Amino acid sequence: MSILVFGRSGQVATELATSPDVIALGRAACDVTDADAIRAAIESRAPKAIINAAAYTAVDRAEAEPDAAAALNARAPAVMAEVAAARGIPFVHISTDYVFDGSGDAPRAPNAVPRPLNVYGATKQDGEEAVRAAGGPHAILRTSWVFSAHGANFVKTMLRLGAERDALSIVSDQIGGPTPARAIAEACLKIAAQLSDNTELSGTYHVSGAPDVSWADFARAIFEAAGLDCTVTDIPTSAYPTPAARPLNSRLDCAATAEAFGIGRPDWRAHLDLVLKELA
């Protein structure tokens, strides 16, 4: 099954590129801010499925660069989805927990009303709406707190800081599911294959790691697994201001994904061990 992936250097795209069925296009091969380039890439390769793993993910910088964020997160997937719909190609689009406002403490279901707190989340919501509006077979896959041995992520940051310092203050009132990029990639491939056989599965789904945890407790787990002696002090989000507001509750209800595709929540603790071995 020939699968065209937009994105090449991101965490999920890097994992997707290891599949022999995948043709992964980085910026040099296809500038996704160029609608004609997207159309040409799809038309010339005639894939059986398309996965969009390209995104503007600099959450804080997006506050000062809303148009750049919108170009990648909203306008690019709109073009991809339109071309895919016109050709009847299943389209899997990766989205985020940041489309929600993080209120309450219950896991958000896929049909919960989005209320993004920041530019990044708003542009991702716009991208979701464009994919749905295209009308083709699709799956919007929201995820959270992505980590891997590649690129920039919380695990790699903690490993660096934990090796440099004896103590760190980490936010403890933001709760979510750390999600291994490898598990997201595997989910995308499985969903793409099943969409090809059953377009009635089109819709919005969630995948996030289990168990849900705070950033502070995630940091503690990283230090313990890596054998780093670094003390973590819990602090509230209010003590760590950032340009972009973050949702306090990033819990995602993943039941629909398990029911439709047989994809359960990955155990981030087991994947953390694998990432540490890969980095070593």
Rank of each mutant, 00 (worst) to 15 (best):
D31V: 01
A13T: 01
D36N: 15
I38A: 09
N52M: 07
K48I: 02
I50S: 02
C30A: 14
P47M: 13
V59A: 02
C30V: 15
K48R: 15
V32H: 00
I23G: 01
D36E: 15
D36S: 14
N52A: 09
C30E: 06
S44I: 06
R39E: 10
G26Y: 07
D36P: 03
V32F: 00
A58E: 13
T57W: 00
D34A: 12
T33A: 09
Y56R: 13
E43H: 12
A37P: 02
A58K: 09
Q11P: 03
N52K: 08
D60R: 05
A41T: 03
L16D: 12
D31Q: 05
R45W: 01
G26Q: 11
A49F: 08
A54G: 12
V22T: 07
D34Q: 13
G26P: 10
A28I: 05
Q11D: 07
R27E: 10
N52V: 07
A37S: 10
P47C: 13
A17P: 04
R39Q: 07
A13I: 00
I23N: 02
R39G: 06
A29Y: 08
A24N: 04
P47I: 14
A46K: 12
A17Y: 07
T33R: 07
D31R: 02
A41Y: 03
S19C: 05
I42R: 01
V22S: 08
K48P: 06
A29K: 11
Q11S: 09
T33C: 07
A41K: 08
I23R: 08
A41W: 03
V12Q: 09
E15P: 04
T57M: 00
V59Y: 05
A55R: 00
E15H: 15
A29G: 14
A55Y: 01
G26N: 11
A55V: 02
A41V: 01
A40E: 14
L25W: 05
K48Y: 08
A58W: 07
P20H: 04
A35Y: 01
I38Y: 08
D31L: 00
P47V: 14
R39N: 04
D36F: 08
S44V: 07
A53E: 10
D34M: 12
V32K: 00
A37H: 05
D36W: 11
